[in-house]
């Protein structure tokens, strides 16, 4: 199966992959619509917005990129879910919200996830984020749902790969991972 692989030495820390990720998962599918109408944003912006109660009440941006650029000095790398062949997260998920689809992508049944975070603890790559703005268990204090790369399931080609100006992300077949 084709997966997204980062090429560390080509990454220029522009974060356009995160922009494209957010836009491709938005309802409006345009940059201005995603950011200004839907109030989507990055998980590195405004840490206070991570409190969902505050964010939803104030209408402040929702940080929801699925790939993220890790920065260490002058080394940059855009990371996202590896779509493992034997995914620990799928094994750990206790109600079947995470599953391997027919082509090998690890996907989420968004209306199943109860936010128990077994997946988050099981993933050895730290590829799972929390989306605190969707709640499947009404009344429950915490949680939200699992949030990770779905290889742009609505598109033929992942958006981050398409936008990357230096081809620091490649979408290719490399056998098992």
């Amino acid at each position: 199966m084709k997966r997204v692989y980062p090429v560390e030495e080509r990454c220029i820390n522009c974060h356009l992959c995160e922009v494209a990720c957010i836009v491709s998962h938005s309802r409006t599918k345009t940059a201005l619509g995603a950011y200004q109408v839907e109030k989507l944003s990055f998980n590195w912006v405004r840490p206070h917005a991570l409190d969902p109660a505050v964010a939803l009440a104030e209408g402040t941006p929702l940080p929801l990129n699925r790939c993220r650029v890790d920065v260490q000095g002058s080394v940059f790398i855009s990371t996202s879910c590896r779509h493992c062949q034997e995914p620990d997260c799928v094994k750990a998920c206790k109600n079947g919200s995470l599953y391997l689809d027919e082509v090998g992508r690890v996907l989420l049944r968004e209306d199943h996830c109860v936010g128990c975070w077994m997946c988050l603890m099981a993933c050895r790559y730290g590829a799972i984020e929390r989306n605190p703005y969707v709640k499947n268990v009404p009344g429950q204090e915490s949680n939200g749902i699992n949030h990770h790369c779905d290889l742009c399931r609505d598109r033929s080609h992942p958006a981050c790969v398409s936008i990357c100006p230096t081809q620091a992300l490649v979408y290719e077949e490399r056998g098992s991972s």
């Binding site: 974060h15 922009v19 940059a31 950011y35 200004q36 944003s41 405004r46």
Partner: peptide
């Protein structure tokens, strides 16, 4: 009004010219 605060420009400018005020 068209800026989405992605800070791409902030990171790309090497000449200490572009900043973000949170």
């Amino acid at each position: 009004e068209e800026c989405i605060r992605c800070l791409v420009c902030v990171r790309q400018c090497p000449y200490d010219c572009t900043y973000y005020d949170p």
